[in-house]
Amino acid sequence: MKLGFYPGCSLEGASREYNESVMAIAEEMGIELVSIPDWNCCGATAAHNMDKELSLSLPARNLALAEEAGLTELVVPCAACYSRFCATQHELKHDENLHKKINGIIEKEYKGNLRILNVIQFIEEFIIDKLEDKMKFEINKKVACYYGCLLVRPNKVLNFDRTEDPQTMDAVMKKLGADSIDWAFKTECCGAGFSVSFTETVGRLSGQIIEDAVHRGAEAMIVACPMCHSNLDMRRPEIDKYNKKKSDMPIIYITQAIGLALGIDRKKLGLQRHFVPVKLNDFKPYTKKTEVENPQKMEVE
């Protein structure tokens, strides 16, 4: 099976382990991810902070190229790119004049027929049903699923999961045998775009997120956004400074967690690239639950 794919700049650089783990699980499931030919950066926070038409044109060029390539579904693992793509699609769908104007700027014909999927929608639609047959281990750990901002907000545009207490990632982790905890910072902002320019603010915001998860006994945090991962993993010195204590809870992409359950080699999942070492092991071997689960029923038969 072939699906359209937009890696985005982070997945080609500082977050390449996210890309590696997406590719590894797709390969395991027999899915081919086809990148948009000659894709460009989505513009991220910088574009929409500085110029609206630029912030719509950069994603629109990618969407038009994807349509030209005959793609119908587009998997966008980076939550920030996903958010910019959905915002562009939404805005142009509801404003015909703007749509025409942007097509003129990009010198391409973007029609708006593409189905944009975030990483969780990709997992729900193409991976989750095949897990039982392929799983080798249960991730028998306490985990905190962290969604951040751009995967769930604004709901009017994304129409995905609940904004205050989302559950989709938790459901995936439960399927992998994990104990996903209830906690208070699931959708609080990590500081995102201020990673380089306002590092102290990131230390405070990400620090509160780490502190709550650790306090509630999480052994790992599960994420689906490269910016969240960078802040929570790479900015750990600033986080520990804010919390006035050291924490060693690793931050794992949901695709890496699936990869671990499938028994994929840790290096292939890029786990060695993290700043906070991923020491988690001793996973319980997984045995597929058979149809006859009710002993009473057996006796009757």
Binding site: G13, A14, N40, C41, A46, M50, L58
Partner: peptide, 17 residues
């Protein structure tokens, strides 16, 4: 930061970290 970010896109098409 935003300007440096956008300059990178303008020159290369992508973000050069």
């Amino acid at each position: 930061f935003h300007k440096a970010f956008l300059d990178s896109i303008e020159q290369t098409g992508r973000l050069y970290e």
